[in-house]
Amino acid sequence: MSPSTAAAPLLQVRNLRVEFPTRRGTLVAVDDVSFDVAPGEVLGVVGESGAGKSLTGAAIIGLLEPPGRIAGGQVILEGQRIDDLPYEQMRKIRGARIGAIFQDPLTSLNPLYSVGRQLVETIQTHLPLSAFDARARAVGLLKEVGIPGAETRVDHYPHQFSGGMRQRVVIALALCANPRLIIADEPTTALDVSIQAQIIALLKGLCREHGTAVVLVTHDMGVIAETADRVAVMYAGRLAEIGPVRDVVKNARHPYTRGLMGSIPSIGGHAERLTQIDGAMPRLTAIPSGCAFNPRCPQAGVRCSIERPDLMRAGPSRAACWLYDSAGVGAPAAREAARG
C-alpha cells in the first residue's frame, strides 16, 4: 500500500513537548515536534543519542516514564486525541490500535511464560476469541513471522530462542490485534547485520500486507534508507528536517543532516577523510538559543543564534533552517551579516 497524500493521516503529532522536571530546572527533551503519518506509511525517525527520538515514540504510545511528561501539544490517532486519555483507556488502545516493538527482545518478553501464553494473553485482551482460537491465532502469527516449527515452538520459553527469533516473537506480539500503527524503537540495534536484514525485510513485508503504518525510530540511517517512505531527522529534541527518504538521504537540506550523511562511511567511496561535524550535540541543560545547531553549523549567521527557525519548505522536504526562509531575509542576509 503506498501512502497517498489524499488519505486522512492516521497519526497526527502536533507541537509535541516532553519535559523532565528536575531539581536543577525543567529539561525539555522533545520541543515542538509536529508530523503526520499516513495509513500504511513507514516514517523513519533518526537522530543521535539524546536527540529525543525514543521519547517521541514513547510519548505517542503514552509510555513516558515519570517524571517525564507531555507538557504540550497533541497526539491524534485516527481523529481521536489520545495524549490526554486516562490510563485505563490508553491501555485499551495500546496493543489494539498501536503496537510496539522495542530494542531488546529479551527484556520485552516475560521470561517466566512461554511465548504462546504471552501471545494468547495479548490476543484475548484485545480480541473476543476463545482460548482455542487464540492459540490457533498465536501459532498462525508465529508462522507468519517465519518461526520454523511454530506448533512446537509456541510452548517454548523466550530463553530458548535466539536473538533474531525473539525479535520475531516480539513482532508477532505487536501484530496480535492487527493494529493500524506500530512504534518500532530501534528494533534491529541488538542484532547482527545478517539477522538485521531478515528482521527488516519481515517487518516491511508484514506491514505492507496488513497495511500497518510504522514509526521506525533508529540511529541507523542505512536501515531507514531502505525501509522508510519518509524520514524525520531530530536534533536536540527538535525536528531538523522531514521529507521523502530519497531526498533526505541524497539531497539533504539542513546543514546538520548533510553533516550526518557525510559522516556515514560508505563502501565504494574514495573519500580519504569522513566529513565530520565538530563538537557534540548540546546537553539538554544547555541548548543554545536560536537554532540549536548554530554553534556547530558551518553556515550559521547572526540570525541563527537569535531566532529559532520553524520548518520551512526546502524542495520536496521541509527543513528548520534559515537558509530556506522564503521571505528572503534568511541565510544569505545572515551570511553577509556574519561576513561584515
Binding site: 547485520v193 545478517s194 531478515q198 541507523d220 542505512g222 534508507a225 527518504v245 530519497r246 550523511m261 560508505s266
Partner: peptide, 24 residues
Amino acid sequence: RMLLDTIPDLEMTGRQRAPVAGEV
C-alpha cells in the same frame, strides 16, 4: 558475499536486500 549483501547502505534506498536464512 552474504555479509556484503546484508549491509544496509544509503545507496540502496528502496531496494530490497536479499535476506539470508539461518543464524550463526
